[in-house]
Nucleic acid binder design. Structure first.
Lengths: 188, 188
DNA sequence: CTAGACATGTAAGGAGTTACATGATTGC
DNA sequence: GCAATCATGTAACTCCTTACATGTCTAG
C-alpha cells in the first residue's frame, strides 16, 4: 500500500521503455503535466523500493550509459494489471483561483481580473503544448498499440483547457461589469 | 504560513456568516466539492490557531447553541484581503483514471470501459447537483454582493463537468472500437 | 431504543514538495 | 571557463486523510 499511486505511475512509465529517475520526472513534468505530477523526492525512493520488490530491474540502454535505467519485470507487469483492474480513485482538483473568487466581493475587480487573465494565458499555453504533443505522437507513435489511449489522454487535456479558457472569458466579462474601486466602499 | 491554504478557506467561509467546524466541513463537502476539500483533521486545529491569532473569534448564533461558531475579525479580514491580492497557485489536478488509460493496452477494453462509465455517471451526478445549487443560489442569495462570483464558481464546475462528460463519451467510443479480449494476446 | 445526524477533537501515517548537496557532461 | 542540462539522492517539512474516541440530540 505504501508509495501507492506513485508506484503505479512509475510502473506505467517504465513499461513503455526503460527509463531513469530523471527521465520519469521529465516525462511527468512535460507529458503528464495536466493530470499527474511526481517529484524527485517521490521517484527515487520508490524506484529503489520497486527494484527491491522485483517489480522493476536495472536495464541496459545503448543511448546513454550515464544514467541508471529501469525496466518492468513480469511481476511488475502483473502488479500494474492488478492496479488497472481496480476502480480509479476520484479525480482530485484543488483550484486556488476559484477559492479566491469565492470571496470575490472582498477584493477589487482589478485584482480578480489580473488573476483570471493569468489563468487564461496559462490555459492557452497548455492548449498549445497539447497540440504540439498530439502532432509528435502522430509522427512517432502512430502505430503504437497504446496510441489511441495516448490520444484520448491528450483529448481530455484539450477539452479541459478549452472549458477553462471559455470560463476565463466569461469570468472576465462578469468581473469587468462590477463597480470599479474608485468609489471607496465604507465597509468597516 | 502554516495551515496555509486551509487557513484562507476557513476565513473565506466564516466571512459569509459565523460557522462551526462541522458546518465548514459540510460546506466544503457539498458546495465546494468540485474544487476544494478540507477534512476535520485540518479544520479544527486551524480554527483553534486562527482564534489564537485573533483572525476569528467565537460568535453567538440564535439558531443552534450546541456548536461553537466563529466569525471573522477585522485582522482576519485584512489577512484574507492580503491573500486575495497574491497570485493564485496553479490549479492542481490528480486524475487516476487518465493514468490508468495511459497504459490502456495493458488492460482489457471491458475493464477500461467500466472505469470510464463510472466516471461518466459521476460527472452527470455532479452536473445535476450543480444545477440544484445554482437554483438555490438564485432563490436565497439573489441580491448578495458575492452572488455573481458564486455563480461564476458554479459555472466553472459546470463547464468542467460538461467537458468531462463529453470526453467520457468519446473515450467509450474509442475503447469499444478496440479488439475484444476473446482472442488472448500472446504477449509474454 | 436505536439509527443517523450533529458536534469536536486527536493520533498516526501516508503523500508530496522544496531545498539542499553533489557531481558529470555538454555547448557556448 | 561557465552556464545549463543531466543525474541521483536525502532531509525536512507541509499538507492532508483516515481512523479513532467521544458524546448529544432528534426522528422513527
Amino acid at each position: 500500500m505504501s508509495r501507492s499511486r506513485t508506484q503505479f505511475a512509475i510502473l506505467a512509465l517504465v513499461r513503455i521503455q526503460p527509463m531513469s529517475g530523471y527521465e520519469i520526472r521529465e516525462f511527468c513534468r512535460t507529458r503528464l503535466r495536466h493530470f499527474w505530477n511526481e517529484s524527485f523526492g517521490q521517484i527515487y525512493p520508490t524506484l529503489t523500493q520497486l527494484a527491491a520488490d522485483g517489480l522493476v530491474r536495472p536495464a541496459e540502454r545503448a543511448d546513454n550509459p550515464r544514467a541508471t535505467y529501469y525496466e518492468l519485470t513480469e511481476p511488475g507487469r502483473a502488479s500494474l494489471r492488478e492496479w488497472l483492474a481496480r476502480a480509479a480513485s476520484p479525480r482530485m482538483v484543488r483550484d486556488e483561483l476559484l477559492l479566491k473568487l469565492f470571496c470575490g466581493d472582498e477584493a477589487t475587480p482589478a485584482v480578480l481580473l489580473e488573476h483570471v487573465t493569468v489563468a487564461r494565458q496559462q490555459a492557452q499555453a497548455e492548449l498549445d503544448s497539447l497540440s504540439e504533443a498530439s502532432r509528435e505522437l502522430e509522427m512517432y507513435a502512430h502505430d503504437h498499440p497504446d496510441n489511441p489511449y495516448w490520444q484520448l489522454m491528450l483529448r481530455a487535456g484539450r477539452l479541459g483547457f478549452e472549458a477553462r479558457l471559455q470560463w476565463c472569458a466569461e469570468a472576465e466579462a462578469v468581473i469587468a461589469a462590477r463597480p470599479g474601486p474608485d468609489k471607496e466602499t465604507t465597509r468597516g
